[in-house]
Design a protein around this nucleic acid. Structure first.
Lengths: 256, 256
DNA sequence: TGTGCCATGTTGGCTATACAACTTCCGTCA
DNA sequence: TGACGGAAGTTGTATAGCCAACATGGCACA
């Protein structure tokens, strides 16, 4: 038990405890709807302080795996959940975790001046350049999504050396020290334009699920501003939130 | 400073600190991209321990308001964000927070045996009854969303006494001690059927943004299983996630 | 000039303790 | 039998302290 296997801040004790508890829960050790041992009991079992246990449980709580209420033991909510942040930011990681073969092709990679929204999103000065990458992503050969990403030049020029049929873009970036730490996602619906239709092999005007995403590094510097358009029926987005911890919100759009 | 104004577990010190910091950030006191004071400085300012400050900052971190990295002071990511959990679960609260007039009409309220998925989602035995509520929701008179919710009978029968034109359903439930604590959302795309078209005043086959939601109480008991269908262009869902704290996930659907 | 090292500031992680608030259950008493 | 009350168990909140890991800037040295 207490197997290792995390890379971000790696060796933290509470992460190992959390990982072990996740496994136990997924294995049904406490049943679905069953009660977890008390914090003090877990502290003794793992040989750590109650504070560390609480740190671990807080992570499970945020993932929606367990409840937490003053006065009673924690209850198992779901038996499995959660994708790592890496699986969300990287299409490649996600596909692999599904057992599907990720693919993709760069349709366009160019450097050009940023427009108003790109400046806003990437916090660039007016007139600054950005690198635009247009890619079609496939799952086991089938086109699933078209991705239009713009990067600040200092990020984008790291991508110019990558072959056009490279499976992953985020992995080489990570290797060069670019760390994706935060992301804001906006999900709505959009109709395919002619370019979408051509790239995805659908008809123009067909509805697509759109995810716009702004990713930042640990310091808060914008790394990527991307608009992904998914063919319907291929993906769904799931979110968990709880009272006092709601990363999800619903936004109104008065002007279509 | 340190204004009150939270109702769930109300009086916690770290919540007041967090609320105060939120205000300061929203007021631009540290600038966008600016540095927050050190934890120790904040601890002294508020007259609390560093642990309490860290608890408050952890909440802001989860909301994506500030960064956190070992070695450097925290940086302001965004100036404003976040809706309370109540605004997400309740259409009424949400609409009010937008300054729009929420409306709605119950098209159908009936008690009937649950089907297979409803049993699964609400953790009911086979053959158990559920209460189905079909409602059209309007924003300042304009129909925006159709909501199909099923409740376990013990929740549903609390709704039967409510007038058909009642604005909110969740509020009367809360008053009777039903607390919504956790929710799982799945967002995807669906085409309007005849009923949707009739209720929303659109054409059948038109694309709609669908949110399926399962809400549970603090003990983990399912309270509601709902499917909401939004007219395109009226809403967008936004999610924030960060490395190590990802409540969002992307799911594959192999069989449409 | 430029490079590398070190002191300092800052957050992450962990422990220990104490009390408050709440739930559950059991036993007592009417 | 039923209601009330209290004891025990459990999580929430807060404090204090310690060290490690990391970032930054300045200083010394080549």
């Amino acid at each position: 038990m207490l197997d290792d296997g995390a890379q971000p801040p790696g060796g933290a004790l509470y992460r190992k405890v959390a990982a072990d508890l996740r496994e136990s829960i997924a294995a049904g050790e406490y049943g679905s709807g069953g009660k977890l041992p008390a914090e003090s009991a877990l502290a003794e079992r793992y040989g750590v302080s109650r504070g560390t246990i609480r740190q671990a449980l807080s992570a499970l709580r945020a993932d929606g795996l367990v409840t937490s209420r003053r006065g009673t033991r924690r209850v198992v909510l779901g038996t499995t959940r959660v994708q790592s942040f890496a699986e969300l930011v990287s299409f490649t990681n996600w596909a692999r975790s599904l057992g599907e073969e990720p693919g993709g092709r760069v349709e366009l990679l160019e450097r050009r001046p940023a427009d108003a929204e790109e400046c806003e999103q990437l916090r660039l000065d007016d007139g600054a350049d950005v690198v635009l990458v247009l890619r079609v992503r496939t799952l086991t050969g089938r086109p699933v999504m078209v991705e239009r990403s713009v990067y600040p030049v200092w990020v984008g020029e790291l991508l110019t050396g990558i072959p056009a049929d490279a499976v992953s873009h985020t992995e080489p970036l990570q290797e060069q020290g670019v760390v994706f730490a935060d992301a804001d996602h906006t999900i709505d619906l959009v109709l395919a334009d002619e370019e979408d239709a051509r790239l995805l092999g659908c008809r123009a005007g067909e509805p697509l699920l759109r995810e716009r995403r702004r990713s930042t590094d640990p310091v808060g510097a914008p790394l990527e501003w991307s608009e992904d358009r998914y063919l319907p029926g291929t993906v769904a987005f799931t979110v968990h939130n709880s009272i006092g911890r709601s990363a999800l919100s619903r936004r109104h759009r008065s002007a279509p």
